[in-house]
Amino acid sequence: MRIALFITCVNDTLFPDTGRAVVRLLERLGHEVVFPTGQTCCGQMHYNTGYRRPAARLAVRFVQTFEGADAVVVPSASCAAMIREHYPKLGRTGSRLSRRMADLGPRVYDLTEFLVDVLQVTDVGAYYPHKVVYHPTCHGLRFLGLGDRPYRLLRAVRGLELLELPGATECCGFGGTFAVKNGAVSAAMGFDKARHAVGTGAEVLCAVDNSCLMHIGGTLSRQRSGLRITHIAEILASTEKEYATT
């Protein structure tokens, strides 16, 4: 299958390892990955902060860039939710643009959804000998309804011990510009998430959104907790062979 990768601006700029892991994983599973180079950002930050017109312009760019793709894989549940849930509302009702957006939406997948639902694989042949907790990010949990998909993928990873995260369904406090507009509340939520994660004794906290992980990880690092963060793609891309070399 030919898969178009929408890397997202955050991953592209700050977390290229996640992108490389997605490419490695999908190619290992026997698929072709393409990266339409005209892509930039889905517009979620603009949309959520109340800047609808810039968000709509970025949505148009996205649709123009990805319209021809059979499947678009996004290693970010919140960006996938932005495209699927909010894009159709950005064009005028009944307009050609909103139809194009509604048409593309169902072919846009978060990585874990794509693996489980489209490729129908839960054991991706990964090896990751660590104690891990999974934080279900809000957009993955409540907007996309990822359910147990990420857990099924993680449980199939050899060597991985999946621990239960207390208060898992509670927001980490990132929330885009909320993190700075209401920094004190955001930090208080992040502290609690970090405390719960550290309390499990895990070595690694993973999620489907690097933006949330950047917030939780920044908190963990400031506390010198020793608990590392990583995107789920990097765990799923890891194999015994590659593990030894990295």
Partner: peptide, 18 residues
């Protein structure tokens, strides 16, 4: 600064994904 008051910022990678 509202971010760095309580959180570290991630290391900026040498090269972007693209």
């Amino acid at each position: 600064g509202k971010w760095t008051d309580t959180r570290d910022i991630p290391d900026i990678p040498e090269e972007s994904f693209r």
